[in-house]
Amino acid sequence: MMRVDDLPPTFTTDQARALGVHPRELYAWRDDEAVLELSRGVFRRADAPPASLPDVLAVSLRAPRAIVCCVSAAAIHAITDELPSAVQIAVPRSGHSPAIDFPPTTVLRFADAGFELGLSSVEAAPGESVRVYDAARTVVDLIRLRHRFGESVAYAALQRYLSGPQSRPAQLLKYADALGAFGPVRAALDVAVSR
């Protein structure tokens, strides 16, 4: 018989079923608070170490091909003070767009050609990583989508990125060129470095 501690720290209903857990048993564990339901069909063992990004972890298990982006990624990389009201994820334009009610999630559709450009990962819980755009790609996305997220958010993220130890202005321009945003990123970079 499968025990709760035989499961990974965070898991889906499908993963539990593949390991031989009957749904009735899974929901009994939830009712007994041996597991916590992070999102529909995503659970975390109550004895697991705390997750630093539980909402991001839950969304990544619901949409494993998605990549955390924009303000959510900027918050992860500490290049914004904004607190996103929803986890922002990117999916390929040609792919399936997940419908996730909880945690609140905003889905953005990005072109397939540059979809994985700047892909990195971050540990959302001990030993559990999620896909996220790196800081340079995040800055470029915020600038090219400044009409959606606000110019102040985009330019503040650029300033923080440039003042950080991992700053690579050439990487910003490389990503901007590949994503069709070279002009706006170059102009913002020129203003930022002239201050």
Score class of each variant (00 low, 15 high):
Met2Arg: 14
Arg3Ser: 13
Asp5Pro: 10
Leu7Ser: 03
Pro9Phe: 08
Thr10Asn: 07
Phe11Lys: 01
Ala16Gly: 09
Ala16His: 02
Arg17Val: 11
Gly20Cys: 02
Gly20Asn: 06
Gly20Phe: 06
His22Ala: 10
His22Tyr: 12
Pro23Glu: 07
Tyr27Leu: 12
Arg30Asp: 09
Arg30Gly: 04
Leu36Trp: 13
Glu37His: 09
Val42Arg: 08
Phe43Asn: 01
Arg44Ser: 10
Arg44Glu: 10
Arg45His: 05
Arg45Gln: 09
Ala46Arg: 03
Asp47Gln: 05
Ala48Ile: 03
Pro49Ser: 11
Ser52Ala: 12
Leu53Asn: 01
Leu53Ser: 01
Asp55Gly: 07
Val56Thr: 01
Val56Ala: 08
Val56Met: 10
Ala58His: 03
Ala58Cys: 03
Leu61Asp: 07
Ala63Leu: 03
Ala63Asp: 01
Ala63Gly: 02
Arg65Asp: 14
Arg65Trp: 10
Arg65Glu: 13
Arg65Pro: 14
Ala66Gly: 02
Ala66Leu: 04
Cys70Tyr: 14
Ala73Gln: 06
Ala75Ser: 13
Ile76Thr: 03
Ile76Ala: 01
His77Ala: 02
Ala78Phe: 15
Ala78Trp: 12
Ile79Thr: 03
Glu82Arg: 14
Pro84Thr: 06
Ala86Thr: 09
Ala86Tyr: 11
Val87Ile: 08
Ile89Trp: 07
Val91Thr: 11
Pro92Gln: 15
Pro92Trp: 07
Arg93Pro: 11
Ser94Pro: 06
Gly95Met: 07
His96Asp: 14
His96Tyr: 15
Pro98Gly: 02
Ala99His: 15
Ile100Tyr: 00
Pro103Tyr: 14
Pro104Ile: 10
Thr105Val: 00
Thr106Val: 11
Val107Gly: 05
Arg109Thr: 11
Phe110Asn: 10
Asp112Thr: 04
Ala113Tyr: 15
Phe115Asp: 05
Glu116Leu: 13
Leu119Trp: 13
Ser120Ala: 11
Ser121Pro: 06
Ser121Ile: 13
Val122Ser: 09
Glu123His: 03
Ala124Arg: 02
Ala124Cys: 04
Pro126Ser: 04
Gly127Pro: 11
Gly127Ser: 05
Gly127Ile: 06
Glu128Pro: 14
Glu128Thr: 10
Val130Gln: 03
Arg131Trp: 12
Arg131Tyr: 12
Ala135Trp: 00
Ala135Arg: 05
Ala136Pro: 04
Ala136Gly: 04
Arg137Asp: 01
Thr138Gly: 08
Val140His: 00
Val140Ser: 00
Asp141Val: 10
Leu142Ile: 07
Ile143Arg: 06
Ile143Trp: 04
Arg148Trp: 11
Arg148Leu: 12
Arg148Pro: 12
Val153Tyr: 01
Ala156Asn: 12
Ala156Glu: 13
Leu158Pro: 08
Arg160Tyr: 09
Arg160Asp: 04
Arg160His: 08
Tyr161Phe: 11
Pro165Phe: 06
Gln166Phe: 12
Arg168Met: 10
Pro169Asp: 02
Pro169Gly: 00
Ala170Met: 07
Gln171Trp: 08
Leu172Val: 09
Leu173Tyr: 08
Leu173His: 05
Lys174Asp: 15
Tyr175Cys: 07
Tyr175Ser: 05
Ala176Trp: 01
Asp177Leu: 12
Asp177Tyr: 15
Leu179Lys: 07
Leu179Ser: 11
Gly180Thr: 01
Ala181Phe: 04
Gly183Val: 14
Pro184Leu: 06
Arg186Tyr: 15
Arg186Ile: 09
Leu189Arg: 00
Leu189Tyr: 05
Asp190Ser: 15
Val191Asp: 13
Val193Pro: 02
Val193Trp: 01
Val193Met: 06
Val193Phe: 03
